[in-house]
Design a protein around this nucleic acid. Structure first.
Lengths: 206, 206
DNA sequence: GCGCACATTGTCCATCAGTACAATATATTT
DNA sequence: AAATATATTGTACTGATGGACAATGTGCGC
């Protein structure tokens, strides 16, 4: 196990050294020589913005793909956490986290896990629950209230198609489309097709 | 540390016991007496469907809120994983996972982490990147193309408001609202307000 | 000062959307 | 067999929508 710290600060924080006694500070990525031993790269970000992350993380992974990366942020933010994980980081936490937390993070990451703050986690689960879980589920519940034909019409309408276009697709009159749509509005409590589109496409971020 | 297994299939216990030698199988939730020691509850789900999870997990957490829950699924699915995590589980994996993996999961969870499969994780990060990262970003890019007033009008229109309602909110004529909207359509390449609403609310799942 | 982008409003008009009132046909349930 | 739910289409009407053509005022940079 090898722990490398990349930080713009001249010295490692004491809490880091407490958590990782054998920590080594490096200045350039070329010091990440590829070895057999597992490597954890602690990347310290002291300024906001995603440019450094976007450069550093891919560079590290290019050097040594199996490297575990933990991002230490001076000013942590949800969006940056998303960003870091999206770039391949295994952990994202406050740079001033107590050594106890850092140790836990190291343990988790070493064992193939991902470590993120609980707030972030809540947010993540909430967002994704709304997205892939409930969302589709909720939409299914709504659609289930409609008849088969009403569903087809509603779905097409929710895509933004006009009544005429829907009529052509389903091979019926646009008058019939109106009938089904009106019925769908009534059943689902939508005031118009835009409202219905919002319900069916849903937008968890409102 | 106390490990409790809830399973309808005792046959699998042997492989689990390899990973967690001191594990104990329980049949009813009332056996989860609240103690000082940390408890991991391994919940085995052998049939598809979310009803059992929706019953069991909250019940466990009601008994002993600090319990860590790991769900073992005979037929794992992304949606069920989402569901389990949303209900408060700390881990979700295949019921036939090798003991080595189970050990890792235990380590991760014990240290306050969340364990999910790598496929799930990829999906999660992809979804959330699209959701909270790029999505908002994309929308920002779209909105940035509009003038301040056009943005305001477009945003309200995307919520489903009529021109009159928007006019009232912004304290302008509905004719002006039309003007800004028309301009926004032109700029963003939207054919009508529904199209614009879909663009701005976005629907990463289409 | 002049041009330009932006905001505001007007009239006119063609089209679309949604509802009201109504009728017919088919399938399923009781 | 009667009733009910579903699918289909019609006419007529109202209101919303979006574009065409046009004008006025304001602020900002060259």
């Amino acid at each position: 196990m090898r722990d490398l710290f990349i930080t713009p600060q001249p010295e490692l924080l004491s809490s880091w050294l407490q958590a990782v006694p054998k920590a080594k500070r490096i200045t350039g990525l070329n010091e990440i020589t590829s070895t057999q031993q597992e490597t954890i790269c602690w990347v310290h970000i002291d300024i906001a913005g995603q440019k450094p992350l976007a450069d550093i993380l891919p560079a590290i992974l290019k050097h040594a793909p199996s490297t575990k990366i933990i991002v230490l942020a001076n000013a942590p933010s949800q969006s940056e956490a998303f960003y870091a994980l999206g770039l391949g980081a295994q952990g994202y936490c406050h740079a001033f986290s107590p050594s106890k937390v850092l140790k836990e993070i190291k343990t988790v990451v070493t064992h193939g896990g991902i470590w993120v703050g609980s707030d972030f986690l809540k947010q993540l689960i909430h967002a994704t629950t709304n997205l892939a879980g409930n969302k589709t589920h909720q939409v299914s519940i709504l659609l289930a209230k409609l008849t088969k034909r009403e569903q087809q019409v509603a779905i097409e309408a929710a895509k933004g198609l006009s009544n005429k276009e829907i009529a052509r697709i389903l091979n019926i009159t646009d008058r019939t489309v109106k009938a089904h749509l009106s019925s769908a509005f009534e059943t689902l409590g939508a005031k118009d097709r835009l409202h219905l589109a919002l319900m069916l496409n849903d937008n968890s971020l409102k």
